[in-house]
Amino acid sequence: MSFLEKLLEPVQGVMLPVPADLAAPELVALLFTVWAAAFGIAVFPWAIYRWLKKKDDIPLWMCVGGLLCSIIEPMLDHIGHLWYPTNLPGPAFTGFELNIPWLIPPCYVFFISMTGYWAYTRMKDGLDIKGLFLVWLLISMTDLILEMPGTAMGAYTYYGDASFKIFGFPIAWGWLNGTSMLAVGALLWLVEPHLRGKKRAYLALVSVSAMGASYGVTAWPYFMSLNWDGLPWISTRLLTVASLVLCLILVRFIAAAVAKNGNVSIKNRVGAG
């Protein structure tokens, strides 16, 4: 096959059958569950401490929000071609006919909500545009660090012909998740000053709203590359790169709103700092 033929080779993009026979090695299943879940569980005592001792309820609402947000995992797994072997500890719940292991809800608490919360604290301290891109880069890296050990050891798999895999991990998920975590921080930064009294409970919806919105804006080319039947190979790669471009545009939009030198003034943000 010539190079040109390779570039234009049609790629099967229909909903693929999941690798249902895949089993994670027993020890790997246990170790990866610890790796992905322990951070999220460790956060709760701190969040309760912040609430009771410092009268700061944001971390606790974000923890609850992380648990809620994990409900969208089966949808992402379905269109993003991710399969958790059924012998991983769990399931925590089932959706889209997929078993979601126990590790996922606490994983969302730390890696979506609390990473978003960290981005929020950076924004409150005052970030310039460059600083915001640096925060985005850092939190995108955390996703790679979280997921790559799992895919490399066979705890779970991204099946099908996903673009740009390293140790079985399609790095597109790094920038997609990184952008969604930043969006969580930005939405928290925008709405938190407006929510008082019972309305504080709406903070629990920040993670799922921002993550869903971010994926809607940025992930569709990547999901198209996975699910559109018969696209030339090169198109699948270009679509994946397009999702990166959309992520960078969204990060720049966020920077315009939250960065010190951004050009959009959020006048209604109470106590913007």
């Binding site: 170790l31 322990a38 951070f39 460790a42 956060v43 701190w46």
Partner: peptide, 24 residues
């Protein structure tokens, strides 16, 4: 404060790894 939270989570994770290693 958040770096201490991260370190707490990281040390909890590795401590569990060490225990599992010891058991195995």
């Amino acid at each position: 404060e958040l770096i201490w939270l991260f370190i707490f989570g990281d040390l909890c994770t590795f401590t569990l790894f060490f225990f599992i290693f010891g058991h195995a």
